[in-house]
């Protein structure tokens, strides 16, 4: 089984639109949306949910006002300034609470409860291209790293049980915890970038991360025609770091038009753009197979 994760560092480079197209072109695969903060893949894939589960992660502190003596011990000890003095008494700001349990431990009257924190939901769904594993965090919730690991585990379990030989994931953006969780142990990362200062900067950051985890990287330059000088720089960067440049795509409104119709770009049109995406996908498959064979 091979796991390919599409990443971007910077948002808005076309990562999700391309993942959707690859989901259309690939065969015998499980699709996984690891961008749990802003999952957009379902807007194109239109999944039918077949299974839903609540996602809990960590704990949160809640002060029982009937027991609280307002001594302020928690207020003093909380390193996250999560305890607030309000007219109704001391309250925990759940957006600031990290669930460290220090206040619970030191409360002299045992007034602080410490329940599991309900952070979101995850789903197993059916799409026209195969099964989709995806999730939605509730607004403001963190710990998406754990949720990302959970989704990957579900996808792997499904692939093993039903003999799928590919897991195709839309990775999390950034370089923090969620993207680390989406990359660790994956077989191939495909970074979608654009020829802008931010695009190049973020590509470098995310490639550093992949090097740290010893994951091979393929690079796609999207919107290449808006700045050819910058493209040159990215190409040099790829060469210096031994990254495979798997393709370049022009700035094209067809991506937006396809999205509006909830279609992948490869379903929406069959012209040059779709053909080029087909060739890019073939190169990615070859890269992933090569890695497996080695």
């Amino acid at each position: 089984m091979v796991e390919i994760t599409i990443i971007s560092g910077k948002g808005g480079t076309g990562k999700t639109s391309l993942t959707a197209a690859f989901a259309h072109l690939a065969s015998n695969h499980v699709i996984c949306d690891l961008d749990v903060d802003a999952p957009d893949l379902h807007l194109i894939l239109k999944p039918e949910n077949e299974y839903l589960e609540e996602f809990f992660s960590g704990h949160e502190a809640i002060i029982d006002q009937n027991l609280c003596s307002s001594c302020g011990e928690c207020l003093e000890r909380c390193k996250y300034n999560a305890i607030k003095e309000t007219p109704e008494g001391l309250m925990v700001d759940l957006l600031a609470c990290e669930g460290c349990k220090v206040c619970v431990h030191f409360c002299p009257v045992g007034a602080i409860e410490f329940p599991m924190r309900r952070c979101g939901q995850w789903y197993l769904s059916k799409t026209r291209f195969g099964p989709l594993v995806h999730a939605q965090l509730f607004p403001g919730e963190e710990n998406s790293g754990l949720l990302v690991s959970l989704l990957r585990k579900q996808a792997r379990g499904m692939a093993e049980k039903e003999n799928y030989n590919l897991i195709l994931s839309d990775g999390a953006p950034g370089i923090g915890c969620p993207v680390i969780s989406s990359l660790s142990g994956t077989d191939l990362a495909v970074a979608v970038t654009e020829p802008t200062p931010s695009g190049s900067h973020d590509l470098e950051r995310v490639v550093n991360l992949c090097e740290h985890f010893k994951i091979p990287v393929g690079v796609i330059i999207n919107k290449f025609d808006i700045n050819l000088d910058q493209v040159k720089k990215i190409e040099n960067f790829c060469q210096d770091h031994g990254l495979s440049l798997v393709g370049k795509l022009p700035y094209d409104h067809a991506f937006t038009e396809a999205m509006v119709q909830a279609k992948t770009i490869t379903e929406y049109q069959s012209g040059d753009l779709a053909e080029e995406i087909g060739r890019i996908w073939a190169r990615i498959e070859a890269l992933a197979q090569l890695k497996k064979a080695a």
Partner: peptide, 14 residues
């Protein structure tokens, strides 16, 4: 602010 709606984004705008 950072994009998204998770903890860092809330922290940045609050």
């Amino acid at each position: 602010a950072p994009p998204g709606t998770s903890c860092p984004a809330i922290n940045a705008v609050k």
